[in-house]
Design a protein around this nucleic acid. Structure first.
Lengths: 210, 210
DNA sequence: GTCTATACACAGATAGAC
DNA sequence: GTCTATCTGTGTATAGAC
């Protein structure tokens, strides 16, 4: 957990209460973003779920966009903590690290904890880009995945037909792959089967392997 | 074009004008749905783009949801026409038919003509499910793709690790794959390169092939 | 069927008392 | 910082004249 390793020392009671409240807010936002997406989520719902008045929310976060950004920062921190534990196993092959990462994102999504944001909303984009914590986290994750991607291409386990950036984008896209939701809604397969199928689709492709 | 082959004969001048107007409306809706998605699209924008008053729009379509449904019916008709021409070549292998279909959906998306709807909006879902033209088109497309999928699995070209329904869902999901938009925004590759990369990712997978 | 004008609802954000 | 009450903008949908 390198991101939280620089442990902040003492905090006053009020400070801890404040942070706990904000944590509850971000949890509610995260859940609602995963369930309905940014546009369909309303600030009233967030306030109702947390159990405080809407005006109080705005004392903590200046806008709906900043609420979403806080949720994104948190998933990014969760992702970095997950990458930390993966990197602890130095003997693992890069391709398996990538696969484990993809599996993790799919499980987060199936747990209803993967916030989904529209890629076109400009005010939201602006807020995210101006959020240093989010951008730093995104850069960190991208660099770590990028290192695995180039290493996996070098050792011959990852296709060299694709530039690393295309692989990276594909990893991000699969973190919100709607196929998971489709298969979950079909109620034909277990959660483990669904993850396995989508992982296979992603890494082995639709075409038969010899 | 089997869907339009049962040609209705004469139409009065007023009828033709009416249909042309509705076609212009659906074109505008289709473009705006592709550009901003259902939630961000406003009926005012549609009216402005068509060049008529908003109230006139509501004489043609009773709700925003029905506007989106009309656009979906049209892409479904376009897809069926494309499938017709593909099926005309009886010598083609099923796996290549599937690949050609995926390529077509990606090109439609890159042309900014692939409407994107939220999968969670319930009022929109209800409208779509109650729209016979849409549901018939969806069923037709699904059955035709399903036939190719089972055939391709039978001849050994498509992976048998995945149930046909998972392959079908994957095809639908890739029709709106955000990776296309990511790569287009990166401005590093040509349109043809982007299509080729995403097609490769989909059919060959990220892992290297021997 | 097309228009202008407007009703209606709802969501983001704020005022001001405590 | 929390609350109730309110402002303000915007978006869907409609009324009613022509």
């Amino acid at each position: 957990m390198s991101s939280t390793a620089i442990a902040p020392p003492k905090r006053s009671f009020r400070e801890r209460m404040h942070l706990a409240r904000e944590d509850a807010i971000v949890s509610a936002v995260n859940r609602l973003l995963a369930e309905k997406g940014f546009d369909a989520m309303t600030v009233d719902e967030v306030a109702a779920e947390v159990g405080i008045a809407k005006a109080s929310l705005y004392k903590h976060f200046p806008s709906k966009e900043d609420l979403a950004a806080a949720a994104m920062v948190r998933v990014m921190d969760r992702a970095r903590a997950m990458l930390d534990t993966l990197q602890a196993d130095a003997s693992a092959r890069p391709i398996d690290q990538l696969k484990a990462t993809a599996r993790w994102t799919m499980e987060v999504q199936l747990d209803g904890e993967m916030p989904s944001l529209p890629s076109e909303n400009s005010s939201l984009r602006a807020t995210l880009i101006n959020n240093k914590a989010y951008m730093d986290g995104l850069m960190d994750v991208s660099e770590r995945l990028g290192a695995w991607i180039t290493a996996a291409q070098a050792d011959g386990s990852l296709s060299t037909a694709l530039p690393p950036i295309a692989v990276l984008y594909t990893m991000y896209a699969r973190a919100c792959d709607p196929v998971l939701g489709f298969l979950k809604g079909a109620e034909l397969y277990t959660r483990e089967q669904i993850v396995e199928m989508v992982l296979t689709t992603c890494f082995d492709g639709l075409r038969a392997r010899p």
